[in-house]
Write a protein that binds this DNA or RNA. Structure first.
Length: 566
RNA sequence: GCGCCCUUAGCUCAGCCGGAUAGAGCAACGGAUUUCUAAUCCGUGGGUCGCAGGUUCGAGUCCUGCAGGGCGCGCCA
């Protein structure tokens, strides 16, 4: 089956050709915002009238006369200045829902052509805790990967770890002089942070600062002792990160951190110099993109060291070589826009043609509208935040389902609590700075994960009470208005999923799922299922099942699970 | 100072390439339940889409200017 919008676009294209116009590949068609205007609308008559200097309503009349859509529903209507409104017929919707139910993909088409896409996201820093700042990158990147894969693209997810920076001078100094081994065993990252902070404070003394620098230089020169300490920091940090990733159900194909590229930087710089794209400035080697900024892109620092500009460029070339991707997406916060513009500018200059995207996002704010912090002023650690989400979600579960075993309740609380945190991110436009509020994201009302999960649970409860097994009917016949509305909403899934990648907006899918759940709730209120006579009962069960599958699949694309009860 | 982003209902936010009378949730008020999980649904009130111009048949959406807010701005990442 084809998504409704694609079908209408196709028919529209044929009609435009028939009346002698040259249509776009995908003439504008969209679902209407108001049911009075039908289910779908197009304004092509007005846009073409403008080009051809014709009367828009007259042109709309010619288009409608040439349109062959009688299998989809009643004849389209012309309204207002030249809108063409389509209404889907009950029999078309019935066929469409039955077809989507037979399809494992629920009607979502496979993208063509399939692309190879590298998604760079999460990227926490070694020896620092993962905090709320990392959650958006992690969750957004994971969702984009899930959606891209579902659409048939070849995806490589890469966690570009911050495992090679100047902070290691202080960390190693701290390790050698300040380390508490018991604390390291108990809370590795916390202890690494502590020694870093103390070393940082001690570095106010120039002698300590010098020793920190020496440790860094030794590390960079391959000193075995310092390499061992560094490796130890990496593995202990990774253990903690892995727990968070496991909790979030986030997985990477590669975790090639900055250190992986370290050995390549000197040769890369030499190659860039040969290309003549670098200039010397105050002892540093820089690339200027004056149209972007008066500030340079520093490839090699005046002390001969390399910053992350060099690393990111080396990373880009490594990826080109290894995977020959069609696109690389960097899921990194909005403050780094200039960095990526400069990086991409230099890459273009060097002949890179593939699609490079900085998928930027806004900050997470506390309820005081400032960057989210703990009471003591630290950034909020991610594992604590996730644990709190689970604990908070556990309370209503225990209240509603006290008879469930504790382990089962915990599992449900994880699905609900973690889902709520993820959904709060994803349901919002990615560039919006969003205000973190436990009460809002865990609310059972409004556009939240628990609301959607509850709608799913209600649809599933029906099947538990159903005597015998349910066989999806070959044909459906809708009788109630609420059934038709639910069918119309279900059929839109096929258009909602591909739209996510258009502008990297998972909130499009979230909003769709929310509206779908609201429509389902109306159906649920108005249409008794189990007590309905056949064949109505089978039709309603079919709608419940399809709703459940769409919700499960849709939330799954957002990395969010659904419980069977809650 | 320069650059990027933002400003939509009391609050938190949707609003794709310009399309019809700008939508949700929360909060407020009024209804519906011997439940297929009411963790729900229905209804009411609430708007100069920051301000001022411009382009257009049509602007929350595009352009210019201004105001307010956030972020970034040479050797951190």
């Amino acid at each position: 089956m084809a998504p409704v919008v694609s079908t209408l676009q196709e028919r529209l294209r044929d009609a435009l050709v028939r009346i002698g116009l040259e249509p776009d590949e995908r003439p504008q068609v969209s679902a209407t915002t108001d049911p009075r205007f039908g289910d779908y609308q197009t304004n092509v008559a007005m846009t073409y009238a403008k080009r051809a200097k014709q009367n828009p309503r007259a042109l709309a009349g010619r288009i409608v006369a040439a349109l062959q859509v009688s299998d989809l529903g009643p004849a389209p209507e012309i309204a207002g200045p030249g809108f063409i409104n389509f209404r889907l017929g009950a029999d078309f919707l019935a066929r469409q829902v039955a077809e989507m139910a037979r399809d494992e993909r629920l009607g979502v088409p496979v993208a063509s052509p399939a692309k190879t896409i590298i998604i760079d996201f999460s990227s926490p820093n070694i020896a620092k805790p993962m905090h709320v700042g990392h959650i958006r990158s992690t969750i957004l990147g994971d969702t984009l990967a899930r959606v891209s894969r579902f659409l048939g693209h070849q995806v490589v997810t890469d966690n570009h770890l911050g495992d090679w920076g100047t902070q290691f001078g202080k960390v190693i100094y701290g390790w050698k002089n300040l380390l508490d081994h018991d604390a390291l065993e108990q809370h590795p990252v916390a202890e690494l942070v502590r020694i870093y902070r103390e070393a940082d404070a001690a570095a106010a003394d120039p002698r300590v600062l010098d020793r920190c620098r020496e440790e860094l230089v030794k590390l960079q020169q391959g000193d075995p002792e310092n390499l061992r300490i560094w490796q130890e920091c990496v593995s202990r940090s990774m253990q903690e990160f892995s727990r968070v990733y496991q909790l979030l159900d986030v997985h990477f194909d590669e975790q090639l951190g900055e250190s992986f590229y370290h050995a390549r930087l000197a040769a890369l710089t030499a190659a860039l110099q040969k290309e003549g794209v670098l200039e010397e400035s105050d002892g540093a080697l820089v690339y200027w993109a004056h149209s972007l900024s008066d500030d340079p892109f520093i490839i090699r620092k005046s002390d001969g060291g390399f910053g992350y500009a060099a690393t990111d460029l080396a990373t880009l070339f490594y990826r080109l070589e290894r995977w020959q991707p069609d696109a690389i997406w960097y899921v990194v916060g909005a403050p780094q826009q200039l960095h990526f513009k400069q990086l991409f500018s230099l890459a273009r200059r060097l002949g890179v043609k593939i699609d490079l995207e900085h998928v930027a996002f806004g900050s997470i704010l506390g309820e005081d509208r400032k960057l989210m912090r703990t009471r003591s002023g630290d950034s909020v650690s991610l594992d604590e935040l996730l644990e709190e989400a689970i604990e908070r979600a556990a309370a209503p579960v225990a209240e509603k389902n006290p008879d469930l075993p504790a382990a089962e309740r915990r599992r449900i609380a994880e699905i609900v609590g973690l889902g709520a945190v993820k959904y709060a991110e994803l349901s919002q436009h990615r560039l919006t700075d969003y205000v973190f509020s436990w009460d809002k994201l865990l609310s059972l009302h409004g556009n939240t994960a628990p609301y959607l999960q509850n709608a799913y649970v209600r649809s599933r409860a029906i099947f538990r009470k159903l005597p015998g097994t349910f066989a999806f009917p070959d044909t459906l016949a809708f009788t109630a208005e609420a059934e038709l509305k639910l069918a119309k909403a279900l059929v839109q899934f096929a258009d909602a999923v591909p739209a996510i990648l258009d502008g990297f907006r998972p909130n499009v899918l979230a909003n769709y799922l929310y509206e779908l759940a609201a429509v389902f709730h109306v159906f649920y209120e108005e249409c008794p299922v189990l007590s309905a006579p056949e064949p109505q009962r089978a039709v309603r069960l079919a709608l419940c099942e399809t709703f459940g599958r769409v919700t499960r699949a849709g939330l799954g694309l957002l990395g969010i699970g659904v419980p069977e009860r809650m």
